[in-house]
């Protein structure tokens, strides 16, 4: 990591730091700065580690988007931690917050059995770094993230929709996407199914 990169991080830190929320009556959020893993990460990445908390006994480390792939690569390759199993890559959409998206990586080690959750904030429309080069698992998981949230992973070898058909409009897990619709252009065009009228007769004698 060069000095230029570092200066970039510090300047953008105020923008990409989602402070740990302490909601009223929420789960107890314990500061995890003393944790050995967090100490090691802070030593190495400094300002890139924006927060480290523990919730329900689970470690959550928040990282800036610029350095997330480096942190993840380090966690996998480091001899002491060996987080060699990437369990999940997903996102949470919070339209009222800035940045809107939160990328969540669940890591696990098959040798030490430790677990950690790495989170990073991501603005709407901004590209995210891919971790396909670090774990093969990330391929489909990132494709699903793209399909459901529209997050573009830069450098992904094969970024296209996975669960929804190609040409589908919108990304369903974004909060502005409706949970059901009666009319859908894709369904009407591709499957020739049109929404039934509200007073449809279900006696078994529907004329199509």
């Amino acid at each position: 990591m060069t000095n230029d990169d570092r200066s970039n991080e510090t300047s953008s830190e105020s923008r990409t730091t989602p402070a740990p929320k302490k909601a009223k009556g929420g789960v107890d959020v314990v500061d995890a700065s003393d944790d050995q893993l967090v100490v090691r990460l802070r030593e190495r990445f400094g300002e890139a580690i924006t927060s480290a908390v523990s919730m329900v006994g689970q470690r959550i480390v928040t990282v800036t988007i610029e350095s997330v792939s480096e942190v993840l690569a380090y966690l996998k390759s480091d001899d002491e931690f060996r987080f060699n199993l990437l369990l999940d890559v997903t996102a949470v959409h919070r339209p009222e917050e800035d940045p809107q998206f939160e990328l969540v990586y669940q890591l696990c080690s098959t040798t030490t059995l430790e677990r950690v959750r790495i989170k990073t904030g991501l603005a709407d429309g901004a590209p995210a770094p891919t971790v396909c080069g670090i774990w093969g698992t990330a391929n489909w998981l990132e494709r699903e993230c793209y399909d459901m949230f529209g997050i573009v992973f830069e450098g992904h070898p094969d970024l296209r929709r996975i669960l929804l058909p190609d040409g589908w409009e919108g990304h369903p897990l974004r909060k502005e996407y409706p949970v059901e619709f009666r009319e859908n252009r894709w369904i009407a065009e591709n499957l020739n199914i049109h929404a039934l009228p509200d007073d449809a007769d279900f006696s078994g004698k529907v004329e199509i």
Partner: peptide
């Protein structure tokens, strides 16, 4: 449930 988050895993017959 109180505001917060949890990642809970189980061993299902297919995997985690």
């Amino acid at each position: 449930p109180p505001a917060g988050e949890v990642f809970h895993t189980n061993e299902s017959p297919k995997g985690e």
